[in-house]
Amino acid sequence: TTYYDVLGVKPNATQEELKKAYRKLALKYHPDKNPNEGEKFKQISQAYEVLSDAKKRELYDKGGE
């Protein structure tokens, strides 16, 4: 599973699309609303952290993490 899959976006997604997808999923899986989905929330946050940063995203796209 790639970070793009976690957020449900395509690899060519814009920053705005990433932000929108992250917010939607973060609300859905937030531990306050969904106590059993803490791990999913962490995955979503990690994916967004990497993909929202241009340098980290470039490194990730080249095969790094």
Rank of each mutant, 00 (worst) to 15 (best):
G63L: 14
K42T: 08
A13T: 05
P35G: 09
T1K: 13
L7T: 00
K56P: 02
D32L: 13
D32K: 12
V50A: 05
N34K: 06
N36P: 07
P35I: 06
P11E: 08
E37S: 11
N34E: 07
K33P: 04
D5M: 08
L7F: 02
K55W: 09
E37C: 15
Y22T: 00
R23Y: 13
Q15G: 08
Y29F: 09
K40V: 09
E39G: 09
Q43A: 13
E16T: 09
N36M: 12
D53C: 06
L27I: 11
F41S: 02
E58S: 07
L27D: 14
T14N: 06
L7G: 00
K55Y: 13
V9W: 00
G64V: 15
D5W: 06
I44F: 03
P35C: 07
K20G: 07
K62Y: 07
H30N: 11
K24A: 13
H30R: 10
L59Y: 08
E37K: 07
S45T: 15
F41Y: 08
Q43C: 11
G63K: 10
K40Q: 07
A21Y: 02
Y3Q: 02
G64K: 10
D61L: 03
A13F: 06
G8S: 04
S52A: 08
H30M: 07
G64S: 12
Y60N: 03
S52M: 10
V6H: 05
E39Y: 08
A13Y: 04
H30E: 05
D5A: 08
P31F: 06
K40P: 04
A21N: 04
P31M: 06
L51P: 00
D61I: 02
Y22Q: 01
L59I: 12
Q15I: 10
E39F: 09
L27E: 15
L7C: 01
D53Q: 04
K28S: 08
L59P: 03
K56R: 13
G8C: 07
Y4K: 00
K20Q: 14
G8I: 02
Q43M: 11
Q46F: 09
K40M: 13
K40G: 04
Q46H: 12
E16N: 08
E65F: 14
K62N: 11
A47I: 06
Y22S: 00
K10G: 10
G8Y: 04
K55Q: 11
K62P: 04
R23V: 13
E58W: 08
A26G: 04
A54L: 11
V6K: 04
E65G: 13
R23A: 15
D53G: 03
L27W: 12
N34M: 07
R57L: 03
Y29W: 06
L51N: 00
G38A: 15
K19V: 14
L25C: 05
S52V: 07
K42V: 07
N36G: 11
E49C: 14
R57W: 02
Y29C: 04
E39S: 08
G38K: 13
E58V: 05
D53L: 03
E16K: 11
K42G: 05
I44N: 00
A47W: 01
L59M: 13
A13W: 01
A13P: 02
K33M: 14
Q46K: 14
E49W: 12
D61R: 02
S45M: 14
Y29M: 05
L51A: 01
G64F: 15
E58A: 10
N36D: 13
K42I: 09
G38E: 12
E17W: 04
Y22A: 02
N34S: 09
K19H: 13
D5V: 05
A47S: 03
N12S: 10
P35R: 08
Y48T: 00
P35E: 08
H30V: 05
L7M: 05
V9N: 00
D5E: 11
S52Q: 07
G64W: 15
Y3D: 01
G8D: 05
L7R: 00
E39I: 09
L51W: 00
Q15E: 10
H30A: 09
A21E: 04
R57D: 02
L25M: 06
K10W: 07
Y3M: 05
Y4C: 01
Q15V: 12
T2I: 05
R23K: 13
Y60E: 03
P31Q: 08
K19Y: 15
V6L: 14
R23C: 15
L27H: 10
V9P: 00
G64Y: 15
T1P: 14
A54D: 09
G64N: 14
A54Q: 10
L27G: 08
G63S: 12
E65Y: 15
L25F: 04
Y48R: 01
L27A: 14
A47V: 04
L18T: 01
L51D: 00
L18Y: 01
S45E: 15
K28Q: 15
V9S: 02
N34I: 05
N34P: 05
N34W: 07
G38W: 15
L27F: 11
Q43H: 08
D61G: 03
L25P: 00
A21H: 04
K10C: 14
P11Y: 08
G38V: 15
A13E: 02
P35F: 07
E49R: 11
Q46E: 15
S52N: 06
K28L: 15
T2A: 07
F41K: 02
A54H: 09
T2R: 05
T1R: 13
A26T: 10
A54T: 11
K20R: 14
G63H: 14
L18N: 00
V9A: 03
K56W: 07
R23Q: 15
P35N: 07
P31A: 08
R57A: 02
E65H: 13
L27Q: 13
Y22M: 05
Y48F: 10
E58L: 09
A26K: 10
